[in-house]
């Protein structure tokens, strides 16, 4: 596998949101607006990058039977560091994402990539894989967030597109996340087939 393939794999072919359907909790939870989706995506990208590289560096030192707890501790450390730094330097974003930042620890895409890719590949490939998967996740979240924000509150990145009163409220609420995600996956599959 060449480097570009590893990187683009996460963006399109195995996009975590639309193809792998991993990490659904933050996907459905935070995407009430485009900016939240984007912020959450970038935070996850950061975690994926660091955890993938760290795990690929130390994977040979971790005995097989305790690899999952080992990975989880490493991931949790990265997430905690991220959370502390965000609270100190990006308080506004930290407030908007709230509980979902600590929940990156249990985002299955992070552990999934550690187990399925980083543990078996070199640090460079793992870095590219983390970046690709992270950006793919960001792309998915931003797209879903934009859709919900436009349909639900008539805005995009807080810029008003039409009167909020005509927005379809359900898209801001939890059921709207499922509906919007379902239709987005359908559209993306349709586009993929016609290519």
């Amino acid at each position: 596998m060449n480097n570009w393939k590893i990187f683009s794999n996460g963006l399109f072919k195995e996009n975590p949101v639309f193809v792998l359907l991993l990490g659904m909790c933050p996907t459905l939870g935070v995407t009430t607006s485009a900016i939240n989706g984007l912020g959450m995506g970038l935070a996850t990208t950061f975690v994926l990058l660091l955890s993938n590289v760290t795990i690929s560096l130390v994977s040979n030192l971790i005995p097989d039977k305790i690899r999952i707890p080992g990975y989880i501790v490493i991931i949790a450390t990265v997430v905690t560091i991220l959370e502390i730094c965000m609270a100190a330097y990006l308080p506004a974003l930290h407030e908007a994402l709230g509980i979902f930042i600590p929940l990156i620890v249990v985002n299955c895409i992070v552990l999934g990539r550690a187990e399925a890719f980083a543990a078996k590949n070199t640090p460079l490939s793992s870095l590219l894989d983390g970046l690709g998967m992270g950006l793919g996740f960001t792309l998915g979240l931003a797209l879903l967030g934009s859709t919900r924000e436009i349909l639900g509150s008539g805005k995009l990145f807080n810029a008003t597109l039409y009167d909020e009163n005509y927005g379809i409220l359900v898209f801001v609420l939890a059921p709207g996340a499922f509906i919007a995600l379902g239709y987005l996956i359908a559209i993306i599959n349709k586009i993929k087939k016609s290519l």
Binding site: N60, I62, P63, K65, I66
Partner: peptide
């Protein structure tokens, strides 16, 4: 990989 014996697991 490092062998999965008790000592290794605890240490790691």
């Amino acid at each position: 990989r490092l062998e999965s014996n008790f000592k290794n697991m605890v240490l790691v």
